[in-house]
Amino acid sequence: MNKRYLVMGGIIVAFAIATIFLLKKNPKPPVFPAPVENPKAKGPVDAPIEIIEFSDFQCPACGFAIPIIQQVMDQFPGSIRFIYYHYPLPGHRSAPLAHQAAECAARQNKFWPMHDMLYKEQRQWSKVENPSKLILTYGREIGLDGKRFIQCLTDEETAQTITDEQQQGEVLLVRSTPTFFINRQRFVGAGELLDKGAAFIRQELGLDPLPVLPVEPQTQKTPASTTDH
């Protein structure tokens, strides 16, 4: 192999690397103002850790993530502000209605009961052709004002709130759910949240890292994330 041939190879590689660095994107969420009254947030407003979750009610991986999120929140009591963002995936037929229902519940300060209900009953409502009846039942069960709830389910302004949040996710290159931003750092999937996210929180809080424990075989298989295609 002659020298000129190798130099040409080096130029090709250098050009390739430069192209990647020019095109590389990793947008981070802006520092959102923290409204005190956010029905889709939990935890103290002045918590040092902010977790934003982009999630889809019809995505099984998001349902599996709930106990993991709770586990992480329980590890750092009082230190986390958790905020939910709507991110209905295009392939999920019933997701828009579920998100609308959750946003309507939020307007009656019952977002979290509806959130929990939708994930608990996900297998049920996501399988039927038209889940409207089931969604209305869930609204009744969590004590929503039925009339307001029904009106809200077709309200365009409510739908726009969901679209706005979804668009924020698209700008941030959210490709699958659940995607988390912990103090603006991205973690994709519940597994990443548990493994790296928790370690990152410890680091952010100035705590010592936990000792590495031997890895045990996985007993329950859970999907890590659901892609949007």
Partner: peptide, 21 residues
């Protein structure tokens, strides 16, 4: 390479045979 690398972590995690390390 032009996407956030964390998105690819999420994809790889879906293949449960791959050790997380």
């Amino acid at each position: 390479l032009t996407e956030p690398i964390e998105n690819f972590y999420g994809v790889l995690r879906q293949y449960q045979l791959l050790p997380s390390v």
